[in-house]
Amino acid sequence: MTSNQIKRPLGLQLLIYGFVLFWLILAAFPFLWTMWGSFKVELDFFSKGDWTNVFSGVRTQVVYGKSFTGAGYEGAWIQEEFWRAFFNTAIVCVSTVLISLTLATLGGYALSRSGFRYSFWLLIIALVFRALPPITLVSGYLQPFYDWNVWGTLPTTIIVLVAINQPFTLWMLHSFFQTIPKELDESAKVDGCTQFQAFRHVIIPVMWPGVITAGLFSFLLAYNDFAVTALLLSQENQTMVPKIASFMGTTQTEGNIMFAVAAVVSAIVPLFILVMFFQRQLVSGLTAGAVKG
């Protein structure tokens, strides 16, 4: 590419930089704007008259005597008990990731090492399951969950999320294990290991990059889920996303829209941190399936 770059005409160069800047603003500005605005009062965040009010914080100054306020966060986290939703999300995400990784690692490894016809069909079935919108399954869950009296609890939701995540995680780990040479565990088996011992002593030490990537995506699926968590969790067990959705109904009428803004920003921050630390793994995970074709 270097030889290309030197000869690029100025017009094209400007076009490229202009477009990149346009995309950068499109991608980043909404988040930065909302984060900044979450420390203001509603009349500043939604300032019809003069949009620079968000930066100067005129109204915020009038109400609180300074141009920043944590009132939205206080209202959301303490008054509306968003901290409860935060901890519920933490429990749900961590458990979902741990359980679905355990199951999918074993399954994905088996699929990658079995050349039989049925392993192909299992992958196709998993692909079809992956394509189903999760919400189509929910009406199938509700009746039995009521009957067994397990509706609304965190463990039920965790198990459902694990199952819904399985097809995707399975595919991802399957294609990862295929990149680990078969000879590695074959030779361990020649040395007298059983398949499981080969897996334990040879594969487990080298599988962590793939497992971490799959874990990240499994975390995101659980963290970002709305349909399942909103319909399967009771009011007091709500995780962050359904809680935010229920804020929309209540706070908009009570004029506490800044609570919802603060809650939304609180839900974004963990994702920001995640992208910051795991950018490389996320990118490799997104392309893993693609490179396989």
Partner: peptide
Amino acid sequence: LLPMIVTPLV
């Protein structure tokens, strides 16, 4: 990555 990673509802 941000617009894609962020929760759709959020």
